[in-house]
């Protein structure tokens, strides 16, 4: 946020009140710091119990066999050699790419559009409408999509027919699935992100926007050169959160699989494959290996987004 970074504190009438240095303020800061630990502690305990410890357990499981003796990378080799592994990687990869690109582009554009709506009631209602699908739980929203995707009963059957789909099985054929899952995920998740982005846009000081307007920037140039750079962190935040959720694709294919009587396979995504390894083949170590692979890949991509998005840079 280069626009505020270099501003001398004393000369800034807006921030002077907040950032004035002094003994009294330091005491307050120290007290706040203590309180903040109390607030954070609840999260830390839960994160350790349900995040860190299970992760360490999975790491341990992935390098031992069922009797507990160390086998090195054998579980990873076995999982990689499984005939379902590479297809699952490709399925999830295609889904994540389509979904993330659509999410980042459309959510940002829609948030900018909603933010530029002058009428308060219209902007509020539009945000509310965007948000509604997100209030539906994952499985419930998939059930709704079962109807939308079936040309016989779909309210948009004309659209499906236009694409040449006459039956449900044709609609959910393997080639279409990444797009279908991306549409479902976008429909359920995008509304929430639009509201978040709207909040981010609100946090841009009006003086900055006014300055841009005085310099002769129109809506598009303001969006491209002022609003977008200032939303960069929020966009990368959205990308990281969505990436983590997207690589764990599970509910959508699982429900579709049951509804299509197995035409959408039960081993479509990596998470489903991990589930089958654990609970159908009694191979918890192979399952742990898949979990670790997912973790490493999502971590690597998250680091990329953190660095490129400047998420941990302080103003």
């Amino acid at each position: 946020m280069s626009l505020t970074q270099g501003t001398p504190l004393v000369a800034d009438p807006v921030t002077r009140g907040r950032r004035r240095a002094g003994r009294h303020d330091r005491a307050v800061t120290a007290r706040w710091a203590r309180i903040s630990y109390v607030f954070v502690s609840g999260y830390v305990v839960l994160a350790v119990a349900f995040g860190v410890l299970p992760t360490l357990y999975a790491l341990w499981m992935s390098v031992v066999d069922s009797s507990g003796s160390f086998v090195g990378v054998q579980n990873f080799v076995d999982v990689y050699g499984d005939f379902r592994f590479l297809p699952a990687v490709l399925h999830v990869g295609a889904f994540v790419v389509i979904w993330l690109v659509a999410l980042m582009l459309l959510v940002t554009v829609l948030a900018l559009v909603v933010h530029s709506i002058g009428r308060r009631w219209l902007s509020t209602s539009v945000r509310f409408v965007y948000y509604i699908p997100g209030a539906l739980a994952g499985a419930a929203s998939v059930v709704l999509w079962l109807f939308v995707l079936n040309p016989t009963v779909s309210p948009v059957s004309a659209v499906l027919h236009a694409f040449g789909f006459e039956t449900f099985v044709q609609t959910v054929s393997p080639g279409n699935l990444p797009v279908i899952f991306a549409i479902i995920a976008f429909w359920t998740g995008a509304g929430g992100w639009i509201v978040v982005m709207y909040g981010a846009l609100n946090s841009i000081p009006t003086e900055v926007l006014e300055a841009a307007r005085l310099d002769g920037a129109g809506a598009v140039r303001t969006a491209l050169h002022v609003q977008l750079p200032m939303m960069r962190k929020w966009i990368s935040y959205m990308a990281i959160m969505s990436l983590a959720a997207g690589t764990q694709l599970f509910v959508e294919p699982r429900v579709l699989s049951q509804a299509t009587q197995g035409v959408v396979p039960v081993d479509y995504s990596l998470n489903q494959l991990a589930y089958l390894f654990a609970f159908q083949q009694e191979d918890l170590n192979g399952s742990a290996a898949i979990a670790v692979i997912l973790l490493v890949v999502s971590l690597a991509l998250s680091v990329f987004f953190v660095i490129r998005g400047g998420l941990f840079e302080r103003d």
């Binding site: 699989s257 049951q258 009587q261 197995g262 039960v266 589930y275 089958l276 654990a278 609970f279 159908q280 009694e282 918890l284």
Partner: peptide, 20 residues
């Protein structure tokens, strides 16, 4: 439950979870 219809495997996966 779905009775494991069409080879969904839900019977087995649920039991394996309880075994764990």
């Amino acid at each position: 439950y779905d009775g494991g219809a069409n080879g969904s495997g839900s019977f087995q996966t649920k039991i394996e979870a309880f075994n764990q």
